[in-house]
């Protein structure tokens, strides 16, 4: 039986290299925390501190209009952090694996997949901060859980699909254009302000409907709000948000996959 390298099979490759995928995920998490004195504790400290600052600064402006404001901010912050870290790691996944890709045949999609997945694992760990906050608010502030809390995994998975898609697009582009990294850094900063992390679009009283539509077109708007609904439990499950963000994520992952597949054979000539 002659094995054709030319038409390597996606499923066969995945089965053969699934141990590599788990090694990449484990290595990223280990290396990230090994040299830090605070270790895994850093995962909790980072969102906690930034949430404290945001709450301290903005609570006077938004507090009266938003229920459980610290939880509101923390939800937004955690999801936004995951998105920006996963896409940035995904973007750098090919260029940092250049040494391996140039020497050995490895299915290249393993790298953006492994790097975004390792961010996903760290994100899941950091959710413990949210759990701690929720327990405090349930006991002392009379917040109540709804069965929807079980659905919180849905917006989280949609966000992962979106991040993986964006990660593949950025990984491909950054192989050919090194300055994509800096441009994306700027984009992420703008995205932070365009995502309702510490404010809510509804209570801002934006009169210009174009601006309002623009803010709502951001898929993170729908994802973050769905997640908050599941955690805090006020309002209703908005199917519009669900279909919009899910559709957006699927289209992104398809575009990312096609772009990546079309260009992956050229990576080695540019890294």
């Amino acid at each position: 039986m002659l094995q054709k390298i030319k038409n390597s099979n996606f499923v066969q490759d995945f089965l053969k290299y699934r141990y590599l995928l788990s090694e990449i995920i484990r290595r990223n998490i280990k290396v990230q925390y090994r040299d830090s004195v605070l270790g895994i504790f850093w995962t909790f400290l980072q969102p906690l501190l930034s949430t404290l600052v945001l709450v301290a600064v903005f609570s006077n402006i938004f507090h009266n209009r938003t229920e459980y404001y610290p939880i509101y901010v923390l939800c937004g912050r955690l999801l936004y952090d995951f998105y920006s870290q996963a896409t940035k790691r995904g973007m750098r996944s090919i260029t940092t694996a250049a040494g391996v890709i140039k020497k050995v045949y490895v299915p290249k999609y393993i790298y953006p997949l492994g790097n975004t997945l390792s961010c996903f694992v760290t994100f899941l760990i950091s959710l413990l901060v949210l759990v701690a906050f929720m327990i405090y608010f349930i006991i002392f502030k009379g917040m109540s859980l709804t069965p929807y809390v079980l659905l919180a995994i849905v917006p989280v998975l949609i966000l992962y699909i979106l991040s993986f898609g964006v990660g593949m697009i950025l990984a491909t582009m950054s192989v050919f254009f090194k300055d994509i990294e800096y441009l994306y850094e700027v984009f992420c900063m703008l995205l932070f302000y365009m995502t309702p992390v510490f404010y809510s679009v509804e209570t801002l009283n934006i009169s210009n409907s174009f601006i309002k539509m623009g803010l709502m077109a951001n898929p993170l708007y729908s994802i973050v709000n769905l997640f908050r609904f599941c955690i805090i439990g006020t309002g209703t499950w908005n199917w519009g948000w669900f279909f919009y963000s899910f559709g957006f994520a699927i289209v992104t992952v398809i575009i990312g996959g096609l772009l990546f597949r079309a260009k992956e054979d050229k990576f080695i000539l540019h890294i």
Binding site: L2, I5, K6, K103, Y105, D265, I268
Partner: peptide
């Protein structure tokens, strides 16, 4: 299998151990 040919084909049977640069990974 690291580079793909622009034209033509390469067929290899069995497990390949490339020792092109040791310690690359």
């Amino acid at each position: 299998g690291v580079l793909k040919p622009t034209k033509g084909s390469v067929e290899v049977q069995g497990v390949i151990a490339p020792m092109i640069e040791l310690g690359a990974g």
